[in-house]
Design a protein around this nucleic acid. Structure first.
Lengths: 219, 219, 219, 219
DNA sequence: TATGAATGAGGCTTCATTCAT
DNA sequence: AATGAATGAAGCCTCATTCAT
């Protein structure tokens, strides 16, 4: 009896594994297509073709094409969360700006992809069926925001108490810089620059952000 | 005889005027639709309906729907150029940060629209038929960049010479902040904030941008 | 000026005519396909192919495939209305059962088609977007019912007053007979019979329907 | 050894029983779904879900979805046969119209379902793979027809011999009434009537059907 | 043997563009 | 010159059936 039990549970586990693997295959294919076919539309057929998974199967995993895209957005935000946590750990271990670096590194690692994700979000917003997904996204984002703020708070208290500067604004400005840096990185119409250099520049700006006395009056 | 000649030129001028007016009608309708139908697609039919111009006629003005969109992007950038020039004039007349303010005010005046334009640009990039339009766009953008840099240069020389900081980076950072501010303004998932306040905050950051000693080491 | 006016109105009329003609083409093609492809599904593509009208054009005339089908149902009921009116005229002119004959002849003229229309109605009922169409259908049907009842009423008053028999029931029974006759006509599983003969049989039954004393107790 | 043999036969019987039970489960689920999802399509997946039997297993019982449906049609007709036989028994025991009542009661017991079955038959007719099923259906139907006719024959001979009226026509008319009554019962577009009352009315009409002198000339 | 995930043909619909009036 | 009806390619999604576990 035990054997049979083992057998069936093993089978179920195996199937679940396969299922999950296929789901990832779909997501990976979609991500790849999104990046590589900047002008062409990413169709479900193409995803099926590229992931070597039947078109119908895709709809076993995702009710809607948009759900795939929403999932990609969410996963990107989740990934950020993980990296922030790891960054905080490293911060506690002595690396001062590890956490905020993690933020920028996550978003700037693949600027094209981050940009794409933003475009997707703009496109999908307002689609009724995606309301729960967006709720999830926003929940995760708020958590990440809180995490980020916790870093700044610590930085601030370490420096000579300037609590009067709204905390959120720092996070916002931080986000704004990343946002801009990405666009910048991608924008083909600017003079060609050493983007790596620029990115470092911006990361450093941010690292010291909110500390300069210059901004005190602004808040 | 002369009268007739006059008549025909007058007529030609009149027709040109009408033609130009219709073109603007189309562009205005498209812009209005883009802003008001954030989730729905903006189709040529809708543009025709909204602008009260026949669909066929639209194709007398623009060979392609994408050409309309490209035109909107270009116009937005051209408008920026005009405002920058006016800003510089005011700067010369004594208002110190008028030019860079003009930059931000242009982009943040209608954040939704600016954001939309960016999305459009991402979508249209890589479409072969639009190559000349993109070239035009990039030309204008470079001019605007030069204009902006000229402001910073002046600011810098007024301050105690820190020429070692790459000029372009300042423009980039400036752009980045605007970019981020727009996204921020639009993003519904952040804690509700007094956006006007925030925007002012960012504009002020930028106004003093590139002057702080903090960034010297970054470049 | 008059010429131009004439020209444009003529043009508009001509276009409307063409438009209407195409609409009929679509409906005719659909009807033909419905009858001739009893097992296969009637797809929009097939309608387009058969009517030699572009698939897209069809959607200029009907918002939905279902709308085409609904229209066919409604047209069938409308046609009945016309024939009933003509029948009543003939009744008034001396042909006693002309009206009720019209009813049966309409429905039994093309039993396959009548049957098909009934199947369609069953399929389409409950589809939300078709609510107005069904309302229209029901309105027409009620009018037809009233028309039919008016005939019976006359018949009844002419005979020795048996007002106690619910009028509607007569119409119902009449309809029931037609309904059954059609099914019968079509049903391939019955012994082969001289259907024309049968149809006449049923029409005659109905003609005398509601007059026999036999049914008095039934009501 | 015998015991083992017994065991295995018992097992086989048990398995056959289970198999049969599953088959019924499938059919019952399908019937239930057909009735309850008037507008939505009844898919094999839904049948599997509702019957709590794996989709694959269903295809162990029926080669085709259509086969399930055909089976439902046939079963409905078989059931009618049983009820007719019982009716005849009761007729012989003194209840004069028991048999023809049985006919109507069978079909009007669940008008929705009877109507559905008819729609199904229309849809499935002409599908090649279902030829044997339809043959079976027609065989059963003929038997039922003969049964019904036997009743009428008896009635007729009891009355003053009107053999000249084609027997089949009576059966047909009877069927026609049932058919019509069902449609009537279901049709939402008629004035609201006391349907129970109406059904009784029709049953009574039929009970006396074929006896009235009125119809003699019709044949 | 029972299962249910995978499959892909085929359905409906949209929309940029053309063309006859 | 202006119009808008016609067009059909292309997209998303459903569902009967197969097949590996």
């Amino acid at each position: 009896m035990k054997k049979i039990y083992n057998n069936s549970t093993r089978q179920i586990r195996y199937k679940k594994k396969l299922f999950k693997a296929r789901e990832n295959k779909i997501l990976d294919a979609t991500r790849a297509l999104l990046i590589n076919s900047l002008n062409e539309t990413v169709t479900v057929s193409k995803i099926a073709l590229y992931s070597k998974i039947g078109k119908g199967t895709i709809y076993k995993h995702f009710i809607t094409k948009n759900e795939i895209l929403a999932r990609i957005i969410i996963d990107h935000e989740k990934e950020l969360g993980k990296k922030l946590s790891m960054g905080i750990k490293r911060t506690d271990e002595g690396q001062p700006h590890a956490a905020s670096r993690a933020y920028f590194e996550h978003r700037l690692a693949e600027p094209e992809f981050d940009s794409l994700v933003q475009k997707l979000e703009k496109e999908l917003i307002g689609i009724d069926d995606l309301a729960p997904q967006f709720e999830e996204l926003h929940t995760i984002r708020k958590e990440n925001q809180i995490t980020l703020n916790s870093i700044f708070k610590e930085n601030l208290t370490k420096s000579e108490g300037r609590a009067e500067v709204c905390l959120d604004y720092h996070h916002f400005a931080c986000w704004a810089l990343a946002q801009g840096a990405i666009e910048l990185y991608l924008n083909k119409s600017h003079y060609q620059v050493d983007t790596e250099h620029l990115v470092n520049f911006i990361i450093k700006i941010d690292s010291t952000f909110g500390i300069s006395n210059k901004y005190r009056g602004a808040s």
